[in-house]
Nucleic acid binder design. Structure first.
Lengths: 207, 207
DNA sequence: TCCGAATGATACCCACCGGTATCGAAGGAG
DNA sequence: CTCCTTCGATACCGGTGGGTATCATTCGGA
């Protein structure tokens, strides 16, 4: 059952399913979901359309699987900052911000996969939409947890603020109108954390 | 030359070009650019595909024209808050935020046209991309101006912060994971303005 | 009244897309 | 060696997309 991970002849060629997912990730991110045809994915994965439909029910299922992988990457970032800064929630939040800020230049010119997919898949019944929704809910819940641990008086508001800024930064990288986005983003997040943590903000906190 | 604006028979029917643009606005916003075919626009405009191609070179040109209209709406909002609160730049910024916050429920489930179009049109040579880029540049410039007038020590940073938050809020309305988005948005913007205006922020300002 | 531009309606072209059917080659397991 | 699964390749199908050609109709202006 386990495919050969060693010397499959010339170059180490991954099994088809992996190659398909790699190709899909690359193409979906760069060209957009609807722009990329199944044939193009097959070509780039050095396989055939038929092989794709042997591993995935439909193109939509492939899209959903791709987003599931991307979501796992984000979750891994959450895990990493938590283990790197145990019991230091402010540091965890800043670590997340740096993760996004560092990724900005990498995904420049082509924004966040989730935001883009949301725009490209208006049908709320699309299988990928469920993946996105779950991921966003999970993410905001974890972020609220961090804010609460940091003794912020209104963790929901703080988490919402951070979420808005992170997503806005990812959107704004797509057009060149705003430069130094990464640095600006870090300074903004630092300001938010400082304000919510120390002087309890300008508005009434719930308890 | 001027088309009849009165009693064209039964219901007041606008000239075809207007009906086409109205239909395109509605459908592009709700279903997405690529999802909507030219035939669907013609049907909804109660005209024919042929008529569309008599008024617009290509579908892409129609998309660009649509975004030009949307951009004009946003500019009108800028104009309005400026005339409503002359020499009160903080009020102007809050007015803009309220404009976005009020629009949130209206565009709920289907985000900002510019952000969506950015995701749907990865080709940077698409005619609509130029429209978006110009609009964003113009908007950020105007926002920086307001921040400068409000005596904020780092107007570029403040404008970037506000931009991120506004765009992030529009993105986050698309999935229901964050509720009370409008109220949260207003409180966040108030906090930003307060911080940048009064106590000069936590970071060193560039003189 | 007459003319010409703008409009409406239909049929058509070609390319591409998602998805399926079929067949042969390969390749590991018993 | 043989069997059975996986993989590769090609051809095909129905539907739809953007865009064009053609012709009849309407209607305002001179």
């Amino acid at each position: 059952m386990a495919p050969p991970l060693s010397r499959p002849g010339r170059v180490a060629k991954l099994p088809p399913r992996e190659r398909i997912l790699d190709a899909a990730e690359e193409l979906f991110q760069r060209e957009g979901i609807r722009q990329v045809g199944v044939q193009a994915i097959a070509d780039r994965a050095e396989t055939t359309k038929m092989a794709i439909y042997r591993h995935f029910e439909t193109k939509d299922a492939l899209v959903a699987e791709w987003l599931r992988i991307v979501a796992a990457d984000y979750q891994a970032a959450f895990d990493r900052v938590e283990t790197e800064h145990p019991d230091r929630p402010e540091e965890q939040i800043l670590g997340l911000a740096r993760f996004i800020a560092d990724g900005l230049s990498a995904i420049s010119y082509r924004g966040c996969p989730f935001i883009n997919s949301l725009a490209e898949l208006p049908d709320r019944l699309h299988p990928a939409r469920q993946v996105i929704e779950d991921h966003k809910a999970h993410q905001i819940r974890r972020l609220i947890g961090m804010c609460a641990e940091a003794q912020m008086p209104d963790p929901e508001q703080a988490a919402a603020e951070i979420t808005f800024v992170l997503e806005g930064a990812q959107v704004s990288t797509q057009n060149g109108s705003i430069d130094q986005t990464g640095d600006r983003l870090m300074r903004i997040i630092e300001g938010i954390v400082d304000r919510h943590r120390s002087h309890l903000g300008a508005y009434r906190a719930a308890d």
